[in-house]
Amino acid sequence: MSITFTVAPPGRRHRPLRLAEAMRLGPTGLRPYFQPEENGGSEELERYAGRKTDEIISRLGISPYSGRGFEFTYQQGAYTVRVLTPSAPNDWRIALDFLSALARHFGASVVAENGDNFTAETITSFDYSGDIRAGLMAFLRSLESGNPAILVQGVNVDVSLNREILDHIFRSDSPANAFGDFVGPPQHTDAHFASQMAARAPDGSIQGLYTLTEGVDTVLPHSPTLPPHIRQQVGQESPVDWELALVGIDGPDDDPESFSSLGAVDFAAAFRALPPRKVSRFDADRIYIRGLNRADIRALLDSGRGA
């Protein structure tokens, strides 16, 4: 689900703008968000921004405000902006400001997919509340049909939404803003997303591992599971022994010699022993852990011994 708008430059011979040219029209801070395989730093960003808009479909937004961003390309003689349903209010405001800038630059109107026309001045008043509400209701129907969770695409990271989170959104004074608060902040966190490691031990058992480092904000799963392709390799019925490896830092964090293993504990036991003051929900499937100190880590190690 989405809503698409177009801006068609007048004249029959139009040279499509390069992405950098389009972004300079505004609003200030507009940037592309790359897929992981494309993200090569500032040099890669510069090359990407130099491409013509008829060659790529970009996802644009502004850090740290965008949640889902919006798609932008040039096709069939018009610039196209596509806003996903539902998107956060910030995504809508940025997309509408960009459409206004495009329309003003080309002296053209903005045409919505239903045929409604807007000027550079009136497009910023487009009422997007109904689209957000329709998207949230679609989520509700999906969850009521038996889906345990919905994966919501974000500019940097996808977030999982379940019935509990959606009910909280609907109970808020502004469900649109509450959805924005759910999908937006995770896109711009500096936390480390812990990677999963799994291997078969000499005795044939499957060992799964995540790492938690002292002082580092970390995102961990509530209940670890193997990805489908790994599960297929090891067998659907093979149990997995999940552990949490704990790493200490004694010295500068840019020096590899500063890091040392403090031990490993049963994942579920460590999860139960995490200090509540440092744990918050990231999404339906993950938790956010603010950097633990050495005393916190010792408590986790003790919990593992007692498991």
Rank of each mutant, 00 (worst) to 15 (best):
L19F: 14
D97S: 08
V183N: 01
L19G: 13
S261M: 11
G215E: 01
I287V: 11
S280G: 10
E71F: 11
S129F: 02
L161N: 05
P252L: 03
A134C: 06
R82E: 11
S258L: 03
P221Y: 04
V157M: 04
R290L: 13
T85P: 00
E257W: 13
E71Q: 07
D296H: 08
I287P: 04
D116G: 13
T73H: 07
E44K: 15
A88I: 00
R272Y: 03
E38L: 12
E214L: 05
Q196G: 04
V234Q: 10
R82S: 09
S172H: 08
R59E: 00
N177Y: 07
P86L: 05
F182G: 05
Q187T: 09
F126I: 11
R171S: 10
R163K: 13
L166K: 07
W92N: 10
N156G: 11
T211P: 00
D283L: 05
P224D: 03
A299P: 08
E43S: 14
F182C: 04
S303M: 01
G77M: 08
D253Q: 13
R15L: 06
A101W: 03
R31I: 08
Y79V: 01
G115W: 02
F5M: 00
L246F: 09
Y288A: 09
D253N: 15
I57W: 13
G184M: 02
R305K: 15
S58I: 03
G248C: 04
Q75L: 09
L274F: 04
F271W: 10
G29F: 02
V234G: 11
R24Q: 05
L301I: 14
Q232V: 05
R171Y: 10
M197R: 14
E38I: 01
E113I: 11
I132H: 05
F118C: 02
N156Q: 12
V279Q: 02
G26C: 04
A178D: 01
R93L: 01
R281M: 09
D203A: 13
T53C: 06
P32H: 08
F179Q: 01
A191K: 08
G61Y: 00
P252S: 07
G180T: 04
A103M: 08
R286T: 05
V279H: 02
A245T: 00
V216Q: 13
A191V: 02
D250K: 11
S223M: 04
D97I: 00
R141E: 13
I3C: 10
G11M: 05
Y33M: 06
Q236W: 01
G235Q: 00
R277E: 10
V81R: 05
V240I: 08
Y210R: 06
T211L: 08
A245L: 03
Q207A: 11
E38P: 00
G69C: 10
A20L: 11
D54K: 03
P175C: 04
A8V: 07
L45Y: 10
L262R: 13
A20S: 13
G130H: 11
R104D: 15
S172C: 07
F98Q: 11
S174D: 12
R15E: 10
L220P: 03
D217G: 01
